[in-house]
Design a binder for these strands. Structure first.
Lengths: 161, 161
DNA sequence: GCATTTTATATGCCATGTTATATAACATGT
DNA sequence: ACATGTTATATAACATGGCATATAAAATGC
């Protein structure tokens, strides 16, 4: 059965990128499922942003993640319920809520950084190894690569790192 | 403000592809809004699949679009309500519902094919012109390109084609 | 100092995708 | 022919994103 999205090339590039992105996230989920806290792979970028940049207001988080503010507000609520972040009203400007990792959140990030993120990064790098040429060809190679061997089969089976 | 998704490279490639894909679809929406039928850009691939491959059962459509069957079932219901497609129970195998473009749907596709799809394709091709090098660099170039000039500013302003 | 505007966040509604599961029709083995 | 399994589709529950808009706090202009 012909893959129409692929055949249509630039016309459906948006759909295709979304599709590949979702596949990558689903694959990464497999690798994250071993951690103690059940969390969707799509939530990790927010934690990573806080870990990397320190406490940030909702709006700043949205900007650093390239998402809209309402989306970030909702993700923060979810992560706060899980006890991974806390959002504290700013003393100076009472409109702002500054989000930071809790101890539990920081521990989760530390474990992920040590045990899982390197695996994901390596697996994706493996997937993209030797890519070259026009963008559409590279995307086709990624799609074929994922179909042949999903991320969890690309993890270096030896050491953790 | 640092773009964390971009900084994290391969680790967040999935999020990044989704983000770029959504941006492209939103940009393409601008170009489609001129048509008589208000329809989200994300629905066009389904119409394009039917136009390209002829009538297809739900499951075949899902396969040719790379989506899951429940997602396609819903899109088909939506498009059927708009009168753009019809899903007719197969005579032979009564489990199958074969989806085809209605007259209205075919007319919409024909207009889009003539007036809009070439513009989108050209605009995206323009965006991706001169891309080369590693995938991440190409993605960065696309993001920067979209920020500089969204798709609707990349349409050839001269002739329709 | 108060009216007005701007800014930061929250919320409602919708779009679109997923997985898990239900249901109905078909296929198969005995 | 009937029990069993398989297949095609539908539905439910959920996840995540968007846009439009509401609300509250701060800033601004007279």
């Amino acid at each position: 059965m012909e893959d129409v999205i692929r055949s249509l090339g630039y016309l459906c590039l948006g759909s295709r990128l979304k599709r590949i992105g979702e596949q990558l996230q689903a694959d990464a989920q497999q690798l994250l499922d071993g951690l103690e806290v059940p969390l969707q792979s799509s939530q990790y970028p927010l934690l990573a942003a806080l870990d990397r940049l320190g406490p940030l207001a909702i709006g700043e988080l949205a900007q650093s993640l390239g998402l809209t503010q309402p989306g970030v507000t909702r993700s923060v609520s979810l992560l706060a319920e899980l006890g991974l972040v806390e959002a504290i009203q700013s003393r100076g400007d009472q409109r702002r809520r500054v989000v930071s990792l809790t101890g539990k959140g920081q521990r989760l990030v530390d474990v992920a950084k040590r045990d899982v993120w390197p695996r994901i990064e390596n697996a994706v790098a493996d997937l993209c190894r030797d890519l070259s040429g026009p963008l559409l060809d590279q995307l086709a190679a990624i799609e074929d690569g994922l179909a042949t061997a999903p991320l969890d089969r690309r993890v270096k089976t030896g050491a953790v790192q």
